[in-house]
Computed example of a mutant assay.
Amino acid sequence: WRVKILDMTRIGVDAASQFYDEQDEPIQLMFKLYPWEWMIRERFGRHLITSPTRWVEPPWKMILSNKAILPILWQLFPDHPNLLPASFTSYPFDGVPHAKKPFYSREGANVSLLLDDGQVIAQDGRYGEEGFIYQAFAPLPRFGERYATLGSWVVGDDAVGLCLREEFHPITKNTSYFVPHYFIKS
């Protein structure tokens, strides 16, 4: 494929939901660094699902990036070992440590933690107008003075990448230390 860099404001769409670039060439495949919840608010947003344009990260991924799925998963699979208790209301967590997270958020923005001792740790940001979920607190492992978070990338059934983020506070941010790794099959 011939690659073009295109600003979101330069995307056009026709009545058949085909996306076009600024030279009126159809966009057949697109990779974006722009959150899906922002994409659906663009003037072309209503065409995202019906467009013949293929996405490297498909639109259905917006379901997975929305933390509102967490209470639903908990309701469907209570006590599952890979889930933390989660709710749309705070009352199940009255008096116990928990996290408050906006439906949409990036890198810890607008996340707050209520700890055992009643201390609240909060991160500022521009998210939260859509609503919040509440989730049981699971402390990050701490090594020395830093808290560590692992992120992984899986393509198909293969683990292809891993990142390690470290932060001096228990909420990981976009300024946290970041070390990427990739895997090579031997």
Rank of each mutant, 00 (worst) to 15 (best):
Q119T: 15
R165F: 04
T50K: 15
S65N: 12
A122W: 06
P170G: 02
Y91V: 02
F103S: 06
G108V: 00
D79N: 13
D157R: 11
P26D: 09
F143H: 10
S51G: 08
N174I: 14
A16W: 05
L84P: 04
A138T: 01
A138P: 00
R165N: 07
S65I: 07
L33R: 10
Q18N: 10
L84W: 04
H80F: 07
I40S: 00
A15G: 12
H80Q: 12
V160D: 09
F183E: 03
F19E: 01
Y127G: 02
K67F: 03
F44E: 00
K32F: 14
R43Q: 06
K185A: 15
I63N: 09
D14K: 12
P59N: 09
K100L: 11
K61N: 14
L164C: 08
G128A: 03
L140V: 00
W60F: 15
G118W: 06
G45K: 09
D116K: 14
E107D: 15
D117M: 08
S51N: 07
W153I: 02
L162V: 12
H169A: 00
L114N: 04
Q123F: 11
F93R: 00
I49C: 07
R54K: 15
A15E: 13
H181M: 13
Y104P: 01
E42F: 06
L83F: 00
A148M: 13
V13R: 14
F88I: 07
T149G: 04
I121T: 10
K32I: 12
S112Y: 13
L6N: 14
G161E: 12
D79Y: 08
S17T: 11
V3P: 02
Y182I: 04
D24G: 06
V160G: 08
L84M: 12
G125T: 03
A148E: 05
P102C: 09
I11W: 02
S186W: 13
V111R: 00
C163D: 04
Y147L: 03
L64P: 01
I171Q: 01
T175E: 03
V120Y: 05
M62W: 03
T149I: 01
K67Q: 04
L140W: 00
Y182D: 11
I184L: 11
L70T: 02
S87F: 07
D21S: 11
W38I: 07
L73G: 04
L150D: 09
E145H: 11
S105L: 04
R41V: 01
Q28E: 14
H181P: 00
P59S: 07
P180T: 10
R106L: 13
F137R: 06
H98T: 13
G144M: 04
A15I: 08
A138G: 00
L29R: 14
Q18I: 11
T89D: 05
V155T: 14
L115A: 08
P59Q: 10
R2S: 12
G151K: 00
R41D: 14
V179C: 07
R41N: 05
L140C: 00
T175P: 02
Y127N: 10
L115K: 13
F88W: 07
R106Y: 01
A15R: 15
P170N: 02
S65R: 10
R2W: 12
L140K: 03
D94P: 03
A86C: 14
M39Y: 03
S105I: 01
